[in-house]
Amino acid sequence: MCAMTLNICHLYPDLMNTYGDKGNVIALERRCQWRDISCQVTNLSRQDILEPDKYDIIFLGAGQDTESIYEDMMQVKAEGLRTAANEGNVILGISSGYQMLGEYYPDVKGNSLAGLSILDMRTEAGTDRIPGNVVCDCIPLQGAEPTDSYIVGFESHSGKTFLGNGVSPLAKVIQGQGNNGQDGTEGVCYGNIFGSYLHGSLLPKNYRLTDLLILRALQRKYGNDAAQAAIAVLPDSTAEEIARLSCINRILHKESR
């Protein structure tokens, strides 16, 4: 079998990293390396051109104030991102990085801004930010064992995201607000594009989701058989599983009391 390589693009790590979202990139990198998949991370900031065919996974973290990157995002990165989305590159956006994938979203003052319009979703300005822990059931992970698909994290957003008919939620909320606190959905999933409000960071504890993103990227690049074979090499995930379960148990136990 030929050596595999995945290239990850981390967008604006210096400006969109409010909540330790770098952990998502670290998680992808390590879980590739533990499978002998070599992994290159490229940081792109303002003025850097995003060449979509160079990257298998594109990550966009959160920033409380997207003002500093908005112009650059719309003028320098938008085209590359849209191409990547159309070509099936794996894309993950967290919190404001997730909101920006939609039609519009609110800035820090609550004014509506045009988004990248990659996904059929909209984010309305909300009145208050309700930070808190979230447990939800991740739909693409659902399988034999019911709680294996649970993911856990921390949300902190005032914007309310509503998904259009063309896209599906990433997860069903069990505890917490999720997209809008109303319809029980959390995040988005459309082809290889993923969005979520969860910090924590999201991927390290929810390692099955990390592996799903890696699988999707490998499938696209190396075909299904090779990808399945590579992902089947399961690194020891005991520490992650303990952290995930202890968090879930504590949140569900505490909040229901």
Partner: peptide, 9 residues
């Protein structure tokens, strides 16, 4: 701080 994400920074 209820959010421990900062450990990843």
């Amino acid at each position: 701080g209820e959010d421990i994400s900062w450990l990843w920074d």
